[in-house]
Design a protein around this nucleic acid. Sequence first.
DNA 1: ACCTGAACACCGTTCAAGT
DNA 2: ACCTGAACACCGTTCAAGT
Lengths: 216, 216
Amino acid sequence: MLRRANVVAGALDLLDAEGLDGLTMRKLGVALDVQAGALYRHFPNKEALLDAMADQLLEGVDGPLPPDLPWPDQLELLGERLHTALLSRRDGARLVSGTFAPGPHTMAVSRRAAQVLAEAGFPPERAWELTFAVFYFILGHTIEEQAQSRMPAGDNWTTRLAAAGLDTHDPLATGLRTLAVADPGERFSYGLRVFLAGVQQYAPEDAAGPSNAESS
Amino acid sequence: MLRRANVVAGALDLLDAEGLDGLTMRKLGVALDVQAGALYRHFPNKEALLDAMADQLLEGVDGPLPPDLPWPDQLELLGERLHTALLSRRDGARLVSGTFAPGPHTMAVSRRAAQVLAEAGFPPERAWELTFAVFYFILGHTIEEQAQSRMPAGDNWTTRLAAAGLDTHDPLATGLRTLAVADPGERFSYGLRVFLAGVQQYAPEDAAGPSNAESS
DNA sequence: ACCTGAACACCGTTCAAGT
DNA sequence: ACCTGAACACCGTTCAAGT
């Protein structure tokens, strides 16, 4: 007999095999030796299944954080963990970004990040807001990483950009080509640190920050 | 006779009427008084049409920037313009985020942002990287804005999050509920400024920044 | 309660044939 | 060159009927 957890596990394996666009209720039926219609005894629709898959993907991201770590480093660690989890399955970032109803793991991770920010002195709304903001960056960056990795090496997004109208002698054009071959993980970490530097600067209790933390 | 530009314009109007999920080659055919198959004389597939629509949406974002404006303000202006353009059509952010091949307007906007950062002293690769990073934040934030606006008022993403496991007396829970009714435009601007504060701090020529701009 | 078999109402895309 | 008409190979979802 089919259990809800089996369906999610089978769907995630099918995701690795077929990608998000190739993930079909019918193919999932075949993979689980069941008619496609039978899946609707466990999930009201495909959207709900995708939500469950996304939440499963985030299992473990909300692990304990070293309490002696400064809060910006805690956030960086959380961001790197999320990044790793998204990369663990093909199209993982696209899967999570399409989530409609957040599951328990999604909840736990978000809450953890917001709590770190609240303890750093941000008012609760700002803590949530910045949590979402950083997550958007992480999702967007990882979506692009996973899109690039599935493309022929000579046909990157960046390659197209470079070819489409940039002079060969333009330093910006060469920089774009350099980017195309750069380590995506290093790029991600750099972007994350830059964003977190901004967050740190806006922290009310951070003495090094400007006085306009809540104005301007 | 149908022109490529007519197809794009009709498709954008259909997008407003039906949303991205309801945008169908067959419906577009009806709207343009043409068989669906006829559209394939102008675009090789639906993906190419969506790319053209996304690029059209970004027309005008790459307008001239006041040259006397400090570069962080130039970036903020560019970001706000992009935000506005994405909001100008239903599901505009989702449309642009799904873009595969960047068109001329997408190119121009990206290049403009990268150039501002390059002139601020960033090496070209970092300039591109940060351009993408900020765009990811903008797209993600705007996708969520547009998703929220199409949901029943009492059933926000944030409302679900709040209901799913947060204590009523938890300040984080109340903060989340506050967020749900906050002005999305103000939230966007705040997040953008925070990110740009980080960027500014990493700028090599910014004396106020830390010395570890390229290390760590 | 769970699953099968089969249908319903759609999709994107192709292509001979018309004009 | 552009469009029609009609098909092909799929989708997600529903639901009587079986066990």
